[in-house]
């Protein structure tokens, strides 16, 4: 075990760093874009019947497709993987933001209006806070899936933990596979726990409804 860490330790740390960098940057971009888009789309709740299936449809596009197409379009640069992952990560957050906002009960909207809130104030003080649980669970989905698809950065020679996994697979080296797979699994679990933490901070206790 110690031998293994001596040989691969540095490599694992470096790969994990690259991996995390891709994930965080692309999810941050996706979050900014999808929050804005989600709010804009939510101003047209009448189109929900068209918008929602469309978003669900895009969610079924595998990440490899975005990575592949961008690779062909701009080549082997980090931007390829970051943009591809960001595009992939947009859909879960966008959908949840949109659904979260349009599902805010009409009585709260009316109460906000009746209290004299402008549209913007109602959005910031009432609609977004009430949509927050949905937005955060969208964020978790994006984050976890992005960690997963970022493994494919190695497919086009851009590093990350996938490097170790693919190297292990092609050289039939089980230790190498695990050296990539276990840290990747750990990273995803930690990201998920991080979101739980964030949720705990942002959402007051009586509003957290654990269904199970």
């Amino acid at each position: 075990m110690t031998d293994f860490l001596e040989i691969y330790g540095r490599q694992i740390a470096q790969a994990a760093g690259t991996h995390l960098y891709y994930v965080l940057l692309s999810v941050a971009i996706a979050f900014a874009v999808s929050l804005t888009l989600g709010i804009l789309l939510s101003r047209a709740p009448r189109w929900a019947n068209i918008i929602l299936p469309l978003l669900s449809l895009f969610q079924t596009v595998p990440g490899i497709v975005f990575i592949g197409l961008l690779f062909l379009a701009i080549g082997i640069v980090p931007a390829t993987i970051i943009i591809a992952l960001a595009i992939y990560a947009i859909f879960p957050i966008l959908k949840n933001t949109y659904v979260g906002i349009i599902e805010v009960d009409e009585s709260y909207r009316e109460a906000a209006k009746g209290c004299g809130m402008s549209a913007l104030q109602a959005l910031i003080r009432v609609e977004l806070p009430l949509a927050l649980p949905a937005i955060i669970s969208g964020l978790r989905m994006s984050l976890v899936y992005t960690v997963s698809w970022a493994v494919l950065a190695a497919m086009i020679g851009l590093g990350g933990l996938g490097d170790l996994i693919f190297a292990g697979i092609s050289s039939n080296n089980n230790a190498l596979i695990l050296a990539g797979a276990l840290p990747a699994a750990l990273m995803a679990i930690l990201c998920s726990l991080g979101i739980d933490l964030l949720r705990g901070i942002l959402i007051p206790r009586p509003l957290r409804r654990d269904v199970l």
Binding site: V144, V147, S148, W149, A150, V151, L152, L161, G162, I165, G168, I169, N174, I177, L178, G180, A181, L182, A184, A185, A188, I189, S192, L212
Partner: peptide, 22 residues
Amino acid sequence: VLWSVEILQTIPAMALLGIIMV
């Protein structure tokens, strides 16, 4: 049970397949 299946889904697919392949 619920926690275990959630963890399973959190693990990146490629990592999970890699581990099973071992």
